[in-house]
């Protein structure tokens, strides 16, 4: 990311606009790299959970935005390296706290650096999980009416904004939002029926635990 004097000053002072800009410019990369660590790095499987991954992103940014950290960033070296350095320390601390079976050794440190400092190809196991879901979504699309399918395609295949998608179909944005809500409910029901949301069953529009043996 490019740093101008104003952004750097704002960042150092902790100005919300500057911090938000830095977050937006770097959050995707950090999330991707932490995810890579989870799938490719031995010992960080915990971060395969989306909730834990979110917590890790929060923690790394929180550390990067601490007054002392903001004060030492010079705006010259790439912020990406600065952020990944914090992420590296976070991951190694996590491994230490959770008593990584192999201990913290040079190999583990190198592995963390490797996954954090460069984009890695998607791990085969991760791809498998993604494909399972992709397949389910394809099946779901085949179960939709032409109108529902059109909405799904505009919003999720062509990735149009609600405003633009509404205009294409000839609806108001509110009407489109309602239909999208209904579509998501259908999707939820579909995923539940296919066993993707194991153990949770929708009763009306509320989850209840499916009783075993019934």
């Amino acid at each position: 990311m490019a740093w101008d004097r104003q952004l750097l000053m704002g960042f150092r002072e902790g100005a919300p606009d500057a911090l938000a800009e830095v977050f937006r410019q770097n959050a995707e990369l950090l999330t991707r790299r932490l995810r890579a660590a989870a799938w490719r790095g031995r010992g960080f499987e915990r971060l395969r959970s989306e909730l834990e991954l979110e917590n890790a992103v929060l923690e790394v940014f929180a550390r990067a935005f601490e007054p002392r950290a903001r004060g030492v960033y010079d705006g010259v070296r790439p912020f990406e390296h600065f952020l990944m350095g914090i992420a590296r320390n976070f991951l190694l601390e996590e491994a230490r706290i959770r008593e990584h079976s192999a201990g913290i050794n040079r190999e583990l440190e190198e592995q963390v650096e490797r996954v954090l400092m460069q984009d890695a190809p998607v791990d085969a196991e991760q791809e498998l999980v993604d494909r399972e879901l992709e397949g389910l979504l394809e099946q779901f699309k085949r179960s939709l009416s032409p109108e529902e399918l059109q909405l799904f395609d505009l919003r999720f295949t062509q990735e149009l904004g609600q405003e633009e998608a509404a205009a294409r179909i000839g609806l108001s944005r509110i009407q489109l939002r309602r239909r999208e809500l209904a579509l998501k409910k259908l999707l939820l029901e579909f995923l539940k029926e296919r066993g993707y949301l194991r153990g949770l069953e929708a009763a009306g529009w509320t989850f209840v635990r499916r009783s075993t043996g019934s």
């Binding site: 977050f23 995810r35 989306e50 991954l53 929060l58 940014f61 929180a62």
Partner: peptide
């Protein structure tokens, strides 16, 4: 997956995280 998010997290979740990080800062 619906959003084809590059980070793997939905856009709304990223907004939530941003808000939390800014609150903490």
């Amino acid at each position: 997956q619906l959003e084809k998010s590059r980070s793997g997290l939905p856009a709304a979740r990223m907004k939530f995280l941003e808000s939390q990080v800014l609150s903490r800062a």
